[in-house]
């Protein structure tokens, strides 16, 4: 029972830890690639939490084997859900990276403060034109 408790703490604590680490990257970092990776770490933590939710002590993987003695099995649903969530996360991350590559090529920066200035500059203002030039602003951390 004590062992079970420590596994539980490890899995749930690990999931919570991953989420907090990812969230740190999201709120404290200015470089958008790092922020994207932070979101990916949060997703990893959430997926770990979801898989851990289906755990039962001593249970087998949910695959039937006619030769094996049938015992309890872990919950197959969270595993299927996590598979779906992982693929969704990959797709969103890939789209985000593609956007980041294109933006870096056009503006020479992925610093969120510099990009906010570009987005919020009134259309046609000198500032927005100056930022169009490559390497025109911002710094990468």
């Amino acid at each position: 029972m004590n062992e079970l408790l420590s596994i539980g703490n490890l899995l749930y604590g690990g999931a919570a830890g991953l989420i907090v680490i990812g969230l740190f990257a999201v709120v404290a970092r200015r470089h958008l690639i790092r922020v994207l990776l932070g979101v990916a770490v949060i997703e990893a933590g959430v997926n770990l939490m979801l898989v851990a939710a289906g755990f039962r002590p001593g249970a087998a993987a949910p695959i039937f084997d006619p030769q094996a003695i049938s015992g309890p099995m872990v919950d197959p649903i969270p595993q299927a859900l996590v598979l779906t969530a992982i693929v969704i996360g990959v797709a969103v991350l890939a789209l985000g990276l593609t956007l980041a590559i294109r933006i870096h090529r056009q503006y020479g920066t992925l610093d969120t403060v510099a990009l906010t200035r570009i987005v919020n500059a009134p259309a046609g203002s000198p500032e927005s034109r100056a930022m169009m030039q490559r390497g025109g602003g911002g710094h990468e951390s």
């Binding site: 969103v92 956007l99 933006i103």
Partner: peptide, 10 residues
Amino acid sequence: ALIASLRYLI
């Protein structure tokens, strides 16, 4: 629009 889209995506 690309910048706005990326920030929206995040």
